[in-house]
Structure formats: structure tokens, C-alpha cells
Amino acid sequence: MEKIKNFIKMITFPELIKGLSVTTKYLFKKKVTEEYPDFKPHIPYRAKGKLHVQIDTCISCRLCEKACPEWCIKVFPPPKEQMKTDKRPQEFYINQEHCLHCSLCVDACPTGSIHHSYEFELVVTNFKELLFNKETLPYNQLLKQYKWNYIENVPVRPRTTTPLEQKENTK
């Protein structure tokens, strides 16, 4: 009996048939290739993309500028008289060419105005295109594009209250 079984095994080559069936299974499986330029790739939830600043909540404290190890942020605060009423910066430069995406500025910000976006396409033909100012940081457009509120949804800032709020609470 065993001999017959072995003989059948010898002439039917079950291993070969098994291998061929495995490859056939893969032929009809879903392909894993992401066709990037045609279709947007899946971006992880906590991905660190381009830096973006919500100018409306910025208080021109320049903490991000000091925290940046690559000196790629430059904040121009408004004149002293204006500071009492409107603290929004006059000009805000981010040099994305030097940015390390290290999130130190995000951690330093007391109001949570500066943060990473999901934009990762930083390939340009001219380095000057990587220098962003107040007008070219399209924060509000992005909020509409991705249909979520970044600050509420993404846990990049583990502190429940900002230092400024803490200060207000102690008053």
C-alpha cells in the first residue's frame, strides 16, 4: 500500500502542483503597488510634513524661532504699541529647505499655532520656492482640503493646557 502511495506521489509531483497553485493564487490577489502620482498615497496619522502656522492665534513670542536647531524660522513681531491689542506677527518666514521636521518648534509653541501638515511634496526646481512667508502658508485652504481640524484631532501636543492658559488660571 505504502509503495503504491509513494509511486503515485512520484509520478504526480504534488510539490510542483502546490507551488503552481500558490502562484496562481497570487495572480488574482490585490496588488500592493501604490501608483503615487496618479493616486495619493496613504499618509500615516502622525506623519510630519511641511510646517504650517496658524497666524491668527500666533502671539509673536518667538519661542519657535529660538527652539529651532536649524534656524529656519524667522518671526517679525509687531511694534510695541500694537502688541497690547494685536499680537499677530508682521511677517513669518519658514525656510523649509533647512527644516529637519524635528517638531521642537511645535513643542515650544505656547498657543499651538505652528504644527506639521500632511503635505510631503517638497520637490522644487528652485530653492527659493521653499521659503514660505505669511501669505504662502496656506493653512486655511488645507483645513478645507483634508476636512478635519488638525489641532483638535492630532495628539501632537500631549499637554492638556498651554502655558498661557496655565498662567491665566493662576491669576
Partner: peptide, 10 residues
């Protein structure tokens, strides 16, 4: 192309 399909590629 077929080799790609066999290996889950395109």
C-alpha cells in the same frame, strides 16, 4: 506584466 502580477506587483 504577468511576473508582476504573480508577485503582487503591477
Amino acid at each position: 506584466r504577468l511576473l508582476g502580477f504573480f508577485q503582487s506587483r503591477l
